[in-house]
Design a protein around this nucleic acid. Structure first.
Lengths: 203, 203
DNA sequence: GTGATTGTTGACCATTCTGTCAACTAACGC
DNA sequence: GCGTTAGTTGACAGAATGGTCAACAATCAC
């Protein structure tokens, strides 16, 4: 077998956190290595390039957060409550990051997509993949809500896209205003959007 | 008086276009100068830093597009039609850029905000300013629509924020999927969101 | 122990980055 | 013409960039 190491995992974690609170372009390989406590030579032993590290880091982060997502969107929870909880979860997460850094950092995948979609095909495709997974969860909740008669019948896929767009947009506005409170009633907005009870188009 | 020059304007235009289709971090001062046909010495005669140039470039671009915005949101046009036209305008713009570059480039302000909100306070505030102006236009249309009885009564400011979020989110999704068609029925989504006739929460 | 495998190290390279500066030049008022 | 103001130029600096490599060290199977 040979020598073992957790350098790879440390690099993935360091890269995700640094890039998330800053940007891909502004974070250097040296900086990632320093935070990870790994020498640059080792970096290029595990990853062929900074870009490849980023792709792996996003995938690893998704895998790490997957249990949370599955808990939030568990079929045991009423569908509309799943969406509400997901929104609240995002809100809380941004508030926490805001406390930590003094900045609303937004969504790591959205940040990457926005910065790199035209520059790095692999990163673009990876963020696309992950966003589709998120929309899949949203879609399942909407589907179940329709099935349960909680909301009027609508196309779950198309509705999920709209819901996700509102979430992404609100996250971006919160980041640009550097104010997590922008996200405070995201859940209500989402409920309106899909026509949840006595909230149809009344802001 | 002394010598005159259009170097400043050329730099503003070159910077905006380069950064828009790429990213702030990935575009160098040398590159901007080359496209503008201006030597670097002149760059730093007009601008103290790359960051300052970016701020000026976004403001200049907004000012240049302001007539379009005023035409789109003219009080002479029925309020709901203003929103519809604005969405269509954005869709067409992205399609055009897609033809030109092979990429959905998204919104220049949103790109800047997403990449730089945590890194460059001045750029963050400038994008915030401009986004507020956009929301002002949207708000006026919604206000007039309510006044005209076209849509149910709602808070125009809060509704405008939601509408803008959907637009930003859709633009980001289009960029990440590199598919301008994501924006094809943005107008319909927006109409739904504000409760326009016979479209309440039916996707 | 031996050998193969896996991972570590730090010096090194070429390039690119933002930003600087002193010398130069064009246009204007007078 | 003369002085002043406004703008241009190209060479330069210092740091940071992503990436390379050959020598070294730890671990395992046998």
């Amino acid at each position: 077998m040979g020598r073992t190491s957790d350098a790879r995992e440390k690099l993935l974690a360091a890269a995700l956190n640094l890039i998330w609170s800053s940007s891909y372009g502004a974070v250097g390989v040296d900086q990632i290595c320093e935070v990870a406590g790994v020498k640059k030579g080792s970096f290029y032993y595990f990853f062929a390039s900074k870009s490849e590290l980023a792709v792996a880091a996003y995938e690893a982060y998704w895998q790490a957060k997957l249990p949370d997502m599955e808990a939030l969107f568990s079929p045991d929870i009423p569908p509309l409550q799943r969406l509400e909880s997901f929104c609240r979860f995002g809100y809380e997460a941004q508030r926490q990051k805001f406390e930590e850094f003094g900045f609303v950092v937004g969504c790591p995948y959205a940040n990457a997509g926005s910065e790199l979609a035209t520059l790095d095909p692999r990163i673009r495709v990876k963020t696309q993949e992950i966003m589709e997974r998120v929309m899949g969860f949203i879609e399942s909740a909407i589907h179940d809500a329709v099935q349960a008669g909680d909301i009027p019948p609508l196309n779950p896929k198309s509705a999920a896209r709209q819901v996700y767009s509102v979430i992404l947009g609100d996250l971006l506005r919160a980041k640009v205003e550097n104010n997590p409170e922008v996200l405070a009633d995201l859940g209500t907005t989402v409920s309106h959007l899909i026509g949840a009870p006595n909230t149809c188009a009344t802001a």
